[in-house]
Design a protein around this nucleic acid. Structure first.
Lengths: 239, 239
DNA sequence: AAGTGGTCTAGACCACCGT
DNA sequence: CGGTGGTCTAGACCACTTT
């Protein structure tokens, strides 16, 4: 038994986070009212409330006045709103369509394993696709997933996909993406990239390298995106 | 007299924001203790506290247990931490050095006026500089400022500058940058850009177009940055 | 020791939602 | 209408900083 110096509301938040992470409370589920949680956990309603505010800020729950508090479920709108930052020249949002070019499973290279926190050689799924905005191919994307977390992931699953990938991760594999880190740079298009995006070799492309983390903050997706930014851009806020 | 449906803590936050924006409470100043503010404003301490939490989240104040609450003052560290997102290949931060190439004042073009919310033809200051990381020129930057907010801004001011620009804006012109919006894209270097960054024409550059806003959320700086991303990248978090 | 912000509690009342 | 989250209040006590 060791000291836990964190405030009570932080411990409470962690307890509730664990219930979401381990599936005790599934996505979309209604969780007990605040006074009930307070009684069950032996803390005051105010403390539960502060913990819930934290969970809401992390987008793990949604609280609706008069209705109750729900475990957040990924919808296409939600995924696009939070995890898709490409905008058109007027800063407008568009839902991209997806065309899968390739999908295979192979042992992780050392670099891939490092990015996903895996041991070298563990199997990973690799997807390549093109995404179009307003019917024009704009985005080329390579996605890497640890096979252990996504059993049975394969091309047929993707073919029928109407929703965003993150919705599929959650619905079919119980993996909820909570946050992501991205590194952006400018690169010159290779011949292969240029052909796929209907550009010329050497054309400037915005490269976005993302690592996405689940509710328990484990890395679960490595994704590199190349964007033709002639008619689109990446939007960021600093505050 | 019209209805104000916002909750009391939001109105309180606005009252306090105004005191910072109009200089009643200057950067670095110690503001009154929470109970005193509560008594003065005629609200409960809990409501003041919630307003202060909001101000802290917006980084307008800093609260230190045992010492008091202070109006945030821009330091180089703060400016770099929040408004400089370029990292080296190991995700490390470096303080860039600055070499001013040009500084002049001219009437705003229509596009410039629109970006800064000015009338066409109002005078704007224009600065061009190169920033180096680890002694290598990496960033080319063009900055546009409304002359009305920055009277007497000129080359000599910049020459002697040790600090970040945002520190200078606050110290010498009373302009505190509170947030910024950025649009990122990939472009091919022009001959002029290539020469200044010791690259070749057509080299891929990361273009970052920023509009920065003050405490009252008025646009006060338009900045376009071109980054050589061969050894550096732009870091972003999605959550 | 005095004064500050940080935590935690307890409860009243309001606004909103579904039945 | 009953039940939910949202707001607002009042106060006790703790942790930290300075005198």
């Amino acid at each position: 038994m060791t000291f836990d110096r964190r405030p009570l509301y932080a411990k409470t938040e962690e307890v509730l986070t664990r219930r979401i992470a381990d599936g005790t409370w599934a996505p979309g589920a209604l969780i007990p009212p605040e006074p009930e949680l307070a009684a069950e956990l032996g803390v005051s309603p105010g403390t539960v409330r502060k913990a819930l505010v934290g969970l809401e800020r992390r987008r793990l729950i949604e609280r609706r006045q008069g209705r109750g508090t729900f475990v957040a479920a990924h919808t296409s709108e939600r995924a696009l709103f939070h995890f898709f930052r490409i905008r058109d020249v007027h800063d407008g949002r568009h839902a991209p369509t997806s065309l899968v070019l390739d999908c295979r499973t192979a042992p992780a290279t050392p670099a891939q394993a490092a990015a996903l926190g895996l041991a070298e050689g563990e199997p990973v799924h690799r997807v390549e696709r093109i995404r179009a905005l307003a019917a024009e191919p704009v985005i080329l994307e390579r996605i890497l997933l640890p096979a252990a977390r996504f059993p049975g992931f394969a091309l047929p699953v993707l073919r029928e996909m109407e929703d965003e990938l993150y919705v599929l991760y959650q619905r079919d594999f119980g993996v909820t993406i909570a946050r992501a880190e991205e590194r952006l740079s400018a690169v010159a298009a290779s011949e292969e990239q240029a052909a796929k995006l209907q550009l010329w070799p050497g054309a400037p492309l915005l490269e976005v390298a993302r690592i996405a983390y689940d509710v328990a903050d484990r890395p679960v997706e490595r994704r590199v995106t190349w964007v033709d930014t002639r008619r689109h851009h990446y939007a960021a806020s600093l505050d």
